[in-house]
Design a protein around this nucleic acid. Structure first.
Length: 467
RNA sequence: GGCUCGUUGGUCAAGCGGUUAAGACACCAGCCUCUCACGCUGGUAACGCGGGUUCGAUUCCCGCACGAGUCACCA
């Protein structure tokens, strides 16, 4: 056990996209692989951007992916509340402390004012008192050093150093009294004793500002782990940071398309990290076992649907027959034996939304071209097709024990009797009952699913095409 | 534009001074097979460019190019 504490701190401003989830995952993996705690904190300091339901999506996503948190809204913890809008007073209090310590100052300029003309940094204590007494609206700004440089060592990116002169006196408390993200983040991370700040590297260049804040407070600076960006492909082929515009990927959308949460987790774990071994398919707990910060890379990765699909296919194969049938249920909208269906589908789909198209022929015999029956490799032709179908019908009519093994055995026997390869019979029968060139499952598997009555009806109808 | 970061096959990626430069996806071929899929075997394909350092650079250093991130009273 160690006292490693990480936090996932999303804003409820929309759906949960892959970048957020990856951040949650890595926070989880880092704390769990070190035997520490994983904390959820909701950062809802921007009233304007709140979206109803977004918070619930966060809870649901963490729940369905198994990223369970040790502290957070509803589960509680010793450092609550875990929702920033409920911590407003805390930020105000600390902003005052910071002003007293000389790390920040009140700014009474109007929003539109040109920053360069702002002289609030030099206001006397008396002037400030007066403005405050007048209830003049204000913001609190961080007092950045004018010279020197600030540096830190990131566990992934190494030593980063920036000139202080490039840093603006950023706003800490907005005129509505709410803290900005940057400020609330620092205060909460300190108060909640976060040891490792794990976040996307878009924050890399803002980190010196954070450190200056920690220093002004006299607080210990946490360990930083910045994660490489996840890029999305634009329609024109260029790549940019994953966003609505580029490769729009929301967790919920993926799930609705038929990706398994565990597959999504497995895949995004590899966006920026890779294990020492060549193993690729992991459960969440296996990821915890193998995860190591040392193996996080720096270069951006591109979200690749093809690879995701492959990973998903692998996880689908790992599913028990029961859970597969359960998942498949919602994609099957007609009456059919789900268990039998699942058997032929499991190795053939890479995501669940492929199911409807694959099995539509089971519900209703499609119109098809008679030419489909003719297949050189399987030696079917205009002469033998009608005979095969006729004989098959005779044989099948006599079967009362309608199951795959029995059907297979009888049709193989028929082909022997007719001096044909079994492929010829199987091909003819399969086309006759499916009307499709390719089908999931072989002739006898489809016969079994269709049932005796439906199968014979289809067979007879197809035979008519040849009379 | 300033600052910061990155650059190994089409994609994801191992590598951390000397390698036949792994592996995976995709693609192609073959095998297996009651079509397809699964599975198995094999194949095509890569160190951005230019200087150094070194006996030796994909690996270290410096330029350049290209890509990206960030510069909000958004997070």
């Amino acid at each position: 056990m160690c006292n490693c504490r990480t936090r996932f701190a999303p804003s409820p401003t929309g759906y949960m996209h892959i970048g957020n989830l990856r951040s949650a995952l890595y926070n989880y993996l880092i704390s769990k692989s070190l035997g520490g705690k994983f904390i959820l904190r909701i950062e809802d300091t921007d009233n304007k951007r709140q979206i109803k339901g977004a918070e619930q999506i966060i809870y649901d996503t963490l729940e369905s992916t198994g990223l369970s948190y040790d502290e957070g809204p509803s589960v509680g913890g010793d450092f609550g509340p875990y929702i920033q809008s409920e911590r407003k007073d805390i930020y105000l209090k600390y902003s005052k402390i910071l002003v007293d310590r000389g790390g920040a100052y009140y700014c009474f300029c109007k929003k539109k004012d040109d920053n360069s003309s702002c002289n609030c940094r030099n206001l006397s204590a008396e002037e400030v008192e007066n403005f405050l007494a007048d209830r003049k609206s204000y913001v609190v700004r961080q007092k950045m050093p004018k010279e020197g440089s600030t540096s830190f060592d990131d566990l992934v990116f190494g030593h980063i150093e920036v000139e202080n002169s490039g840093l603006e006196d950023q706003i800490l408390i907005k005129s509505d009294g709410m803290p900005t993200y940057n400020f609330a983040n620092v205060v909460d991370d300190h108060l909640m004793q976060i040891s490792h700040v794990v976040r996307g590297c878009e924050y890399l260049s803002a980190t010196p500002k954070y450190n200056l804040l920690y220093e002004s407070f006299g607080w210990e600076i946490p360990t930083y782990v910045h994660l490489p960006l996840i890029m999305g492909k634009n329609p024109d082929g260029t790549v940019t940071k994953l966003s609505k515009r580029a490769g729009a990927v929301s967790f919920l959308d993926l799930v609705n398309e038929g990706y398994l949460p565990e597959a999504i987790i497995n895949y995004i774990a590899f966006l920026g990290w890779c294990p020492s071994s060549n193993k690729e398919i992991f459960s969440l707990s296996e990821l915890v076992e193998e995860f190591s910060i040392d193996n996080i890379g720096k270069s951006p990765s591109i979200f690749d649907y093809e690879k995701l699909q492959w990973v998903n296919a692998q996880h689908i194969k790992l599913l028990s027959d029961e859970s597969f049938a359960n998942m498949a249920k919602k994609y099957v909208n007609f009456d059919v034996d789900l268990n039998k269906l699942s058997k032929i589908l499991k190795s053939r789909i890479s995501k669940f939304d492929q199911i409807p198209e694959m099995i539509d022929f089971l519900r209703e015999m499609p119109k098809f071209d008679k030419e489909l029956f003719l297949n050189k490799k399987n030696k079917t032709n205009e002469e033998n097709i009608p005979i095969i179908l006729e004989k098959s019908i005779e044989v099948l009519e006599k079967i009362s024990d309608w199951n795959n093994d029995k059907l297979f055995e009888r049709l193989v026997k028929l082909s022997d009797d007719m001096n044909l390869k079994k492929n010829s019979v199987m091909w003819a029968v399969r086309i006759a009952i499916s009307g499709k060139h390719v089908t999931p499952g072989g002739a006898t598997e489809i016969l079994e699913i269709l049932g005796k009555e439906e199968s014979l009806e289809r067979l007879n109808n197809s035979l008519k095409l040849w009379k």
